[in-house]
Design a protein around this nucleic acid. Structure first.
Length: 267
DNA sequence: AGAATTACCTGAGCGC
DNA sequence: TGCGCTCAGGTAATTC
């Protein structure tokens, strides 16, 4: 389940393989993922060189001279650079064919991913325009979180999972950050104090950063589709005990998402 | 404007 | 073995 750390690691993994490569051909095997795959990719990309691989939230941005290829991995999407690709298999939906037979291949069983194209600055694209500050920038801090939460009655977990609040935080890291900040996930956002907002902003940055650091040392076996394995503190441990107080963790549903927290440590 | 709900998908796991 | 059910979850689109 790619969230910001997995997308950032994907970016770092792909960048050295892709930058400077010339696109020869584009093969889309299905017309749409969650949204239609732009038909013009097949005509506009060939002949272009990939200049850089960037990221905004959970979106990857490939600078292709004539415009930007925008890719979201959804739930199960995976991008691989293959120097000597095998025949495309099930769920290999898109190939960006590069020099010497190599390929950038998009694999996505659930098809929740997105592929888009823009000739203007990607920040202005409708998919990116409404995204909030990057968690590692100065714009995302306790003051900001306090300000944007004042008029919001939704649960604080839903607020930080909203991409318009902060970029890149999904269900897993929302759970983890709230545990670290010792804040109950179901607290109305507007009930948070400035001090709690400060703790939460810090916790969000920390859990994301630590995940990236851990994943940087993880190597995916050739031809394997996998994100780096992580030991989470609360996520997926609804029936286990709190690592801090040894009390029983509690699993609830919030906005139809599985939520786990410690009722004793998180208030 | 904010909140809630729906739609999009397949594979894994489970009870029977 | 296989059927039907539930769950996983990002986010755009839709509705209230």
């Amino acid at each position: 389940m790619p969230e910001l750390p997995e997308v950032e690691l994907t970016r770092r993994r792909l960048e050295p393989d892709l930058v400077g490569k010339r696109i020869e051909r584009v093969e889309a095997r299905i017309p749409k993922l969650r949204l239609p795959i732009p038909g013009e990719l097949a005509t506009v990309l060939p002949g272009r060189t990939i200049r850089s691989v960037g990221r905004r939230g959970k979106y990857l941005l490939f600078d292709c001279e004539a415009g930007w290829l925008i890719v979201h991995l959804g739930m199960t999407g995976f991008l691989r650079f293959l120097a000597e690709p095998a025949q495309p298999g099930k769920h290999d939906h898109l190939d960006i064919c590069l020099g010497a037979g190599s390929v950038l291949r998009f694999h996505d069983p659930r098809r929740f991913g997105t592929v888009a194209w823009t000739t203007d600055a990607p920040a202005g694209h409708p998919l990116l325009a409404g995204i909030g500050p990057e968690p590692f920038t100065a714009a995302f801090d306790g003051d900001y979180l306090f300000k944007v939460s004042r008029s919001r009655r939704v649960a604080v977990k839903q607020l930080i999972m909203n991409g318009a609040t902060v970029a890149g935080v999904g269900n897993i890291y929302a759970n983890e950050a709230l545990f670290r900040a010792a804040i109950r996930p179901d607290r109305p956002a507007s009930s948070l104090t400035p001090r709690e907002c400060e703790r939460l902003a810090l916790a969000v940055r920390e859990v994301l950063e630590e995940s990236i650091d851990q994943g940087s040392t993880y190597r995916v076996a050739e031809e394997t589709v996998a994100y780096h394995p992580l030991a989470f503190t609360v996520y997926g441990r609804g029936k286990e005990r709190c690592t801090r107080c040894n009390g029983a963790l509690e699993g609830i549903r919030l906005g139809n998402r599985s939520t786990v927290y410690c009722p004793r440590c998180q208030r």
